[in-house]
């Protein structure tokens, strides 16, 4: 098992954001967490990478407890987070942004180059504009840079926070297809999404997060056909 979360609770500023979360991600699997705004999805991601502290419970990555590690140490173990809102280094070029993702093995230029080529294969549009400042790109392209930057860290687990936020349908389709391709490279994906229907379609398994607790879980297909999910999140 790649990621294993047991009884995780998180308090932020006296507020109980997450309680008693149990969640796992296996090798070569896309896991989606859906839920309404403010359900605690982003907090879950931030806690896994270590930007927020867990108040109780354990997080195991490849069967090793990582609770006490700093976020940069977790990143070095092979967890990448593509943060909500892209969060690119705006005064840097595309190339520089991608290079920052390769920080852990920066002293190996060959490896950096190989991974750059992989990312450019996934997103050819970035290759053509690699020397342009990242803040001059459209939202979809920025999301590509952000995912690419996450992939540069050679993650075993790629976490994506709100992939589809503010993007056009065509681009969302393209990005989701790319995400599916990642499984071939032995990368597991953990996504949180508000765009429930599409996310569930590509998910192997999924969880429904409501008000800080997991209320439902199952295969992507099961949840797609679940009454509660349809009513609450897909407006059917």
């Amino acid at each position: 098992m790649l990621l294993n979360i047991n009884n995780l609770s998180v308090n932020l500023g006296g507020l109980n954001i997450l309680h008693d979360i149990n969640l796992n991600v296996n090798d070569r699997e896309i896991v989606v967490v859906v839920g309404a705004n403010g359900a605690g999805k982003s907090t879950l991601m931030r806690t896994i990478i270590g930007l927020n502290k867990a108040s109780s419970g354990t997080i195991l990555f490849e069967n090793k407890e990582i609770n006490t590690l700093q976020s940069y140490e977790r990143a070095n173990l092979g967890i990448s987070l593509v943060p909500e809102g892209r969060m690119l280094f705006s005064d840097m070029t595309v190339l520089e942004n991608l290079q920052m993702g390769a920080y852990p093995y920066r002293k190996n230029p060959k490896r950096v180059k190989e991974n750059l080529e992989k990312v450019f294969d996934l997103f050819p549009v970035l290759y053509k504009n690699q020397n342009r400042k990242s803040n001059t790109f459209s939202g979809g392209e920025q999301q590509m840079i952000s995912i690419g930057r996450g992939l540069m860290g050679e993650p075993k687990l790629l976490m994506i926070d709100e992939l589809s936020l503010g993007l056009a349908q065509k681009i969302i389709d393209l990005l989701l297809k790319t995400v599916q391709k990642l499984l071939l490279n032995n990368i597991s994906v953990l996504m949180v999404e508000q765009n429930v229907r599409q996310a569930l379609k590509i998910a192997n398994r999924a969880y429904v997060l409501d008000n800080g607790s997991i209320v439902l879980s199952g295969s992507g297909e099961d949840l797609l056909n679940n009454d509660h999910v349809q009513k609450a999140y897909m407006g059917l």
Partner: peptide
Amino acid sequence: TWTGKTIRAVVQNKEVASLMGINS
């Protein structure tokens, strides 16, 4: 330089830099 770029990254966003494995 790598170090210089890292500094710029951290200066822009400490949190995101740490996501790249940088000890901000």
